[in-house]
Amino acid sequence: MDSILPKPVTQALAAIGLLYISSKVFNYLRVLASLFLLPGIPLSTFGPKGSWAVITGASDGIGKEFALQLARKGYNIVLVSRTQSKLAALADELTGANASVKTKTLAMDFAENKDSDFEELKSLISGLDIAILVNNVGLSHSIPVPFVQTEEKEMKDIITVNVVGTLRVTQLVAPIMVKQKRGLILTMASFGGVFPTPLLATYSGSKAFLQQWGTALGAELAPSGVHVQVIQSHLVASAMSKIRRTSAMVPSPKAFVRAALGKIGRSGGSQGIAYTSTPWWSHGLMQWAITNLAPGGSMGTIVLGQNKSMHESIRKRALKKAERDAKKGQ
């Protein structure tokens, strides 16, 4: 059957289709190369051994692992988190395993947003050669919850910790890096900030803010020799995710941090998003597939609906568990 379209139009449409498919294939090959083949920028680019790394949310999970791995690479560590006993134990662990490494600690509750805490942090880092800042401190909902049922304190704490705390720490550290004309700022984001997440709406919004802020900050600081990288991830086995068992889709903090530090300057699965990396291989492939293949991309109704169903199920199980625990306590 002959085409009802003129031959030149048919040829033009075929060329457009081939160009579109070719671009997707090329983009996918870039993802594979970024995740599996190409090395990241060496950390020594941002400061030599003996310079300092500041890590927030440092006492557990991903933050603790950043401290352990950066100390092994010869960086002195400023540990900032809520619980002094955990900070002291981690500081002892770092210096015990790495004789040349120095540590400083500051116990502060980011949810309280005390000016005195930030003044103390400013004093603590004054005069230090700071090479790396890891903005890791974060807070999520205790369980998935509809926004209209979210308690005011939980809502405010999430915004204060994830957004305000990160901004205030960065405003203290970034000027030091700009003056030195080198430095690395890593900010932990989340798929919740890329793909809107019903029942985690406030958390999702806070991480979306960090994504946009981090990208803008990267463009601002690049001329000063300071590299900014927003680190994207799906689930990592940690206290925040409440997942203990690791898998290909859920790496341990150790594996995830090793990937993140090894892929500085590489986008991984975050192709096309400036100053951003999704370094863990399965997260990167998942992000690419959803963004490029799901109808409507990241805002597609399929992705949104799956996110909603998953967190409704998690909420239902959490409420049932709380009910059982309450009965046991009677």
Rank of each mutant, 00 (worst) to 15 (best):
L5R: 14
P6S: 14
P6A: 12
P6T: 09
P8W: 04
P8Y: 00
T10N: 12
Q11F: 15
L19P: 08
Y20S: 12
K24S: 12
A33G: 13
P39T: 08
S44H: 14
F46E: 00
G47N: 05
G50S: 09
V54A: 10
I55L: 00
A58G: 00
G61H: 00
K64L: 00
K64C: 03
E65N: 01
F66D: 01
L70G: 03
A71M: 03
R72K: 14
R72I: 06
G74R: 00
Y75L: 13
V80M: 03
R82Q: 00
S85H: 13
L94C: 03
L94D: 05
L94N: 05
A97E: 10
A99S: 13
A99D: 15
S100E: 14
V101R: 01
T103D: 07
K104E: 10
A107P: 02
D109V: 05
N113I: 02
L124F: 12
L133W: 04
L133S: 05
V134P: 04
V134R: 00
N135W: 01
N136S: 05
V137M: 02
G138I: 03
V145R: 03
P146H: 14
K153G: 12
E154A: 01
N162L: 06
R168A: 08
R168V: 06
Q171F: 06
V178I: 12
K179N: 11
K181C: 10
L184M: 12
T187W: 03
M188D: 03
V194S: 12
T197S: 15
A201D: 07
Y203W: 10
S204E: 06
G205T: 06
L217N: 10
Q229I: 04
I231V: 14
S233M: 11
V236P: 02
S238L: 06
M240W: 05
K242A: 14
T246L: 04
A248L: 15
A248I: 09
V250D: 00
F256E: 01
R258S: 14
G262H: 02
K263N: 11
K263M: 02
I264H: 04
G265C: 10
G269M: 10
A274R: 14
Y275W: 13
L285V: 13
A294R: 02
T301Q: 12
L304V: 09
M310F: 13
I314R: 13
I314D: 08
K316M: 15
L319I: 11
K321F: 08
A322H: 02
